[in-house]
Amino acid sequence: MEDVIVRYVSRFILPFVQLYGLYVVLHGHLSPGGGFSGGAVIGASMILYALSFNLAAGSKKLSHDVSSILESSGALIFAGMGLLSILLGGNFLANRAAGIPLGTPGNLFSSGSIAIITFGVGIKVASTMITLFYSLIEEEGHSHDHH
């Protein structure tokens, strides 16, 4: 799709979309939204970029490989925080009970492992949306023999 208006408009709104997505992810423990909704906004922004420019430009910014790696690491952050609680002497996914500092309620850096888990979920959701998009798009280019 080679449309000047779409390109310019998306170039204009993309930074705001991504910033908003990042805001929702990072404030997941403070405000409505969180890892899933914020991650979906970030993922949608990348899809918008790839749609309004083209797939090659989108892959240059964030390749299929990188998005799969991010996808795994998002989930691993979640599981890793749970295992960290066990290492610190609490039960799986324990937060204050495992001695993780909670900080002052209302601050950006507070709520212990919740903030980090939300961040991990954000990465996971954003990269999953992008990976799904790439998988669907790339499928059309390939010829499949199973028909």
Binding site: A75, L76, A79, G82, L83, I86, L87, L88, F92
Partner: peptide, 23 residues
């Protein structure tokens, strides 16, 4: 840390963790 008391969680979490390492 006593690993054996966490077995009910780890029996689920360890395969789940490595499922995401696999890709």
């Amino acid at each position: 840390m006593n690993l054996s008391q966490h077995l009910p969680a780890l029996i689920v979490v360890v395969p789940l963790f490595f499922a995401f390492v696999m890709p």
